[in-house]
């Protein structure tokens, strides 16, 4: 059927599909903003660093939730595993055994990525055979399982490994032996997180614009049809799941490295819920939704707690209300609203 003699008409639909991956100038905005924040708000650098890492984590969640349509409430399982992988490697007591490379940041993030990917491969192989509530429950059960393990393993084995509730403190070596982490002004920490986010983002962006990325959207839109066009859906889902878990592991590793400690909070269900909320607030399946969602969530949380305080839980009211309203009135998130507004303006201009 492939007819080589046909000269394809340069129809707008074709052009649009062919050019979708091209960079647009507006895409520079978040990065310029990230650079500006460093200089404009030096007092908020730790928070800003956390935002950068959470954006990477949110991107990993968006890849499976927003693109492939796999609803999970347990992605902290992979984030936390990456975090503990990096933290355990950096434990001061173990440095001699680890040939003194354990506290090298790049070794840590490599380990976090691999740990996330491996756990993703094993658990994904099991979890992705189920659907809907069962899938959701398995992701939750895995997270809780690991949470309990991290909390209790010291007591069960009688040795100091994860430090239970208190976690582990450590000191990272300078990056590449040159750039020292800075526990006061967080400047190296910020640029480190920034660099990892740039790399992670480019990977995710490449994937979603590829033919593979298109099949993910196909799986989300209609699994039955994907089977019927001959797509090995299960394998594709496992593939994206492992990639997503690797990125979550990477984010987890950076998260603990820039803060010099790990606690079981990295495995907490609350974090898994929060990251999902951030993704939907920003807009799922939209790449930059992760940026906007994380930013809005963190700013909103900070604002609420500074202005209204934490005692009566105004924050829960705000985030709950925001969630309900988003689902009811803006299921495509803030970016979706932005898209609607820009189409409307475009029409008016015409």
């Amino acid at each position: 059927m492939a007819d080589a003699n046909m000269t394809p008409q340069p129809s707008p639909a074709v052009q649009q599909l062919l050019r979708r991956h091209r960079f647009r100038v507006v895409e520079l905005l978040p990065w310029i903003a990230a650079i500006a924040v460093f200089y404009l708000f030096p007092g908020y650098r730790l928070l800003a660093t956390q935002v950068l890492v959470l954006i990477l984590f949110a991107l990993s969640v968006d890849l499976i939730v927003g693109y492939a349509g796999i609803v999970t409430l347990g992605h902290t399982a992979y984030f936390g595993t990456g975090a503990y992988a990096a933290a355990l490697l950096a434990r001061p007591e173990w440095q001699e055994t680890l040939w003194n490379v354990g506290a090298q940041p790049l070794v840590g993030i490599a380990a976090g990525t691999v740990a996330g990917a491996l756990l993703g491969l094993i658990s994904g192989w099991i979890i992705l055979r189920t659907r809907e509530l069962t899938l959701l429950m398995l992701t939750l059960a895995l997270t809780f399982l690991l949470h309990e393990l991290a909390k209790d393993i010291d007591g069960l084995t009688g040795t100091l490994i994860t430090g239970g509730f208190d976690g582990i403190n450590f000191t990272m070596n300078p990056i590449l032996g040159i750039f020292e982490f800075d526990p006061i002004f967080y400047s190296t920490n910020y640029w480190y997180a920034f660099a990892v986010l740039v790399v992670g983002f480019l990977i995710v962006r490449t994937i979603v614009n590829s033919p593979f990325g298109a099949t993910l959207v196909g799986i989300r839109e209609n699994v039955r049809r994907m089977h019927a066009v001959g797509s090995p859906v299960q394998r594709r889902m496992l593939m994206v799941y492992v990639i997503s878990c690797a990125i979550a592991g990477l984010a987890g590793a950076v998260w603990v490295q820039v803060q010099d400690n790990v606690t079981i909070a990295v495995y907490e269900f609350e974090l898994a819920g929060a990251i999902l909320i951030m993704v939907i607030l920003g807009g799922t399946g939209r790449l930059y939704g992760a940026f906007i969602g994380v930013l809005v969530y963190m700013i909103l949380e900070n604002l609420t707690e500074t202005v209204l305080g934490t005692d009566p839980p105004y924050w829960e009211l705000v985030v709950g209300g925001a969630l309900v309203l988003t689902v009811l009135f803006a299921p495509r998130g803030l970016l979706g609203i932005g898209e609607d507004v820009s189409t409307m303006l475009g029409r008016k201009r015409r």
Binding site: M1, M6, P8, R19, N209, S210, P211
Partner: peptide, 24 residues
């Protein structure tokens, strides 16, 4: 059908022939 759907390192637009076939 063309066996390119699992590729993830290059964009959809790097294979205009596949898109042209869809249009055809």
């Amino acid at each position: 059908h063309a066996g390119v759907a699992a590729r993830m390192l290059r964009p959809v637009g790097s294979r205009p022939k596949v898109v042209a076939e869809a249009m055809h």
